[in-house]
Design a protein around this nucleic acid. Structure first.
Length: 575
RNA sequence: CGGGGCGUAGCUCAGCCUGGCUAGAGUGCUUGGUUCGGGACCAAGAGGUCGCAGGUUCAAAUCCUGUCGCCCCGACCA
């Protein structure tokens, strides 16, 4: 490809709206342009990268036996009503309300309903299972706040796969296979990914893993140990129980009521009484399966509702409204405490360690000092029910570290949630009907592109992994009036093209400076520079984008060396 | 949805507070010339309904009201 005949609108300055490095570089390198908030145009260079990524995804999915198809982006809302997800998705689901036919149409944020509809239409027998169907398709979600370039958008490309099975054992096998496939895909894309245990959230289902890339541009929190022997997302991260009661145990004080007028929050109470938030026991009241449930955590900790729900073994769990709180505690909101409460209490494992703590007195404008768990209130149920904080350890005893990250993929075991509600049944060998057991597996294609840039760039621009670069080689000709320069460039261009490589020839009539700046910006991994002075001695220059040194080689040596470097680089990304 | 900010040339921004001639700069673009190995220089040009609508005024980029869009922080996020 000749640069003059192509379309790469690079810019020197960074548009003001871009904050994160990948967004800035994608705009400056002419990869994308925003059309409206949350939707991006993929310009030719960016589209090439996107295609490289989708090719890798497709190859690996096919290798794993998944079968590609293509589903519409417009869905009849009836299918979503069958699973109750019109409500579950809420505002995220984009409706088209302006015309009669459109009022029954939504834009697909994901495709469980559609794929389940397909399977129930065509799959009747266990002989047709298992099957794994996937597509690479545009999704629509009405994100409240699109941000960070293509990292969070309302319209985005996703590879979504759905598998259907006759047994949980077979789902486990496919889940494992997809997990391994994802690892291969990310490795081939050159991403430093981490697989973590995750909550499956509103998707439903049991097991779930997220694939993360650590980056400051991210909006999730990755929790892991320094040696990565343990990794999880923030919601899922398990916390080791405190080792032993602190050796500096102080004498137990007696219970004492203190007047704390209009002082309700942890911060206010600790300031008012001159103690630390960690000296308080926070008493949070929930309604679980229509019964009040109290959770106790240290004042500087936060309850993790997913953990609490699991520990309490309840189906529904919501924060109690003020009226319920008043009824349970006989006090205004802000003065709840465990002493004397006659409801089910689940205690975080950090609380029994506490001594001479402060809690609400269940009496408006009063707190209790000198509260000692076990003495002043009974400890019946202890569990890990909070979010981790700095200083906590993983179950294996190693300290946890926290990093911002972005999610680039997610695998779920869905089970029968959709097949039951949508009646996707198959007949077994005995003629019995059963709902299909399902898994689903998603990859954010645009996010891979942004994450790759987040992971591979410097001050001058992008440094593409060889596997997803828009071109493997950039030929930069200086002194383009010189016949030797042109004939050498043509020789290299033709030679490398014949080897099957994608070559971009910067044939623009520009001074060397801007050409080198653009070369670094767009991040093609190998650059061959041909100038009058060197070529008069039969030499061209070979430079690797992420290395400082420059090699002077003959034209034929440059060709074989470049070919070799590309092969070597690609090999490192293969699994 | 709450809080903050911004909308003036392709891009980065000044001008607005305190209304007043033909609305500016840098960069990019076009043409000519000199240059030519890491964003050169000279000269001449093209390019703007100052987001949009209404109002105040002799006069509005500037003041007022409304509206739309965009960014940031937070909430939300299969």
């Amino acid at each position: 490809m000749h640069w003059n005949n192509y379309f790469i609108p690079t810019t020197r300055e960074t548009p003001a709206e871009a904050i994160v490095p990948s967004h800035q570089l994608m705009l400056r390198a002419g990869l994308v342009k925003q059309l409206v908030a949350g939707a991006y145009i993929y310009l030719p260079l960016g589209y090439r990268v996107l295609q490289k990524i989708t090719n890798i995804v497709r190859e690996e999915m096919n290798r794993a036996g998944a079968i590609e198809l293509h589903m519409p982006a417009m869905h009849p809302v009836e299918l979503w009503m069958e699973t109750g997800r019109v409500e579950a998705m809420g505002d995220t689901l984009i409706h088209l309300p302006d015309q009669e036919w459109r009022s029954g149409t939504v834009l697909g944020p994901t495709h469980e309903e559609i794929i389940t509809h397909i399977v129930r239409s065509f799959v009747n027998s266990y002989k047709q299972l298992p099957i794994n169907l996937y597509q690479i398709q545009t999704k629509f979600r009405d994100e409240k706040r699109p941000k960070s370039g293509v990292l969070r958008t309302r319209e985005f490309l996703m590879k979504d796969a759905y598998s259907f099975h006759t047994s949980w054992v077979d789902l486990d096998r496919e889940y494992r296979s997809m997990y391994d496939t994802y690892c291969r895909i990310y490795k081939r894309c050159g991403l430093p990914y981490v697989a973590v245990e995750a909550e499956s959230g509103a998707m439903g289902g049991d097991a779930s893993h997220e694939f993360m890339v650590a980056t400051d541009a991210g909006e999730d929190i990755l929790v892991r140990t320094g040696d990565s022997s343990y990794a999880a997302n923030l919601e899922r991260a398990a916390i080791a129980p405190p080792s032993t009661r602190s050796s500096t145990a102080s004498p137990l004080e007696s219970l004492q009521e203190v007047h704390t007028p209009h002082v309700g929050s942890v911060e206010q109470v600790s300031r008012f009484l001159g103690c630390q938030p960690a000296d308080l026991i926070k008493t949070i009241i929930f309604v679980a399966d229509d019964q009040p449930l109290v959770a106790l955590v240290r004042g500087d900790h936060e309850v993790n509702e997913a953990k609490l729900r699991k520990a309490a073994q309840v189906r529904s769990l919501v924060a109690a409204d003020p009226e319920t709180i008043r009824k349970v505690t006989c006090a205004e909101v802000g003065f709840a405490g465990p002493v004397g409460l006659q409801v089910r209490i689940i205690v975080d494992q950090a609380v029994p360690q506490m001594q001479n703590a402060v809690t609400g007195a269940n009496k408006t404008d009063y707190h209790l000092k000198g509260v000692n768990p076990g003495r002043d209130f009974e400890i019946k149920e202890v569990a890990d029910i909070r979010l981790p904080v700095a200083g906590d350890s993983a179950p294996n005893g190693q300290p946890l570290v926290f990093e911002k990250c972005i999610e680039i993929g997610h695998v779920f075991k869905l089970g029968t949630k959709y097949s039951v509600s949508m009646k996707a049944h198959y007949q077994d060998a005995q003629g019995q009907n059963h709902p299909c057991i399902m898994g689903c597996y998603g990859i954010g294609v645009n996010r891979i592109m942004a994450a790759a840039i987040e992971a591979h760039h410097d001050d001058a621009g992008i440094i593409w992994p060889m596997s997803i670069t828009p071109f493997q080689v950039l030929i930069t000709t200086l002194d383009s009036g010189d016949e030797l320069v042109i004939s050498a460039a043509r020789q290299l261009y033709d030679g490398l093209t014949q080897h099957g490589w994608e070559v971009l020839w910067d044939d623009r009539e520009l001074r060397p400076g801007p050409k080198f700046m653009d070369a670094d910006l767009i991040g093609v991994p190998l650059r061959l520079t041909i100038g009058k002075k060197n070529i008069s001695q039969g030499l061209v220059e070979l430079k690797v984008r992420n290395a400082a040194e420059v090699h002077k080689l003959s034209v034929t040596d440059a060709l074989t060396r470049t070919d070799q470097l590309i092969r070597e680089a690609l090999a490192t990304y293969q699994s």
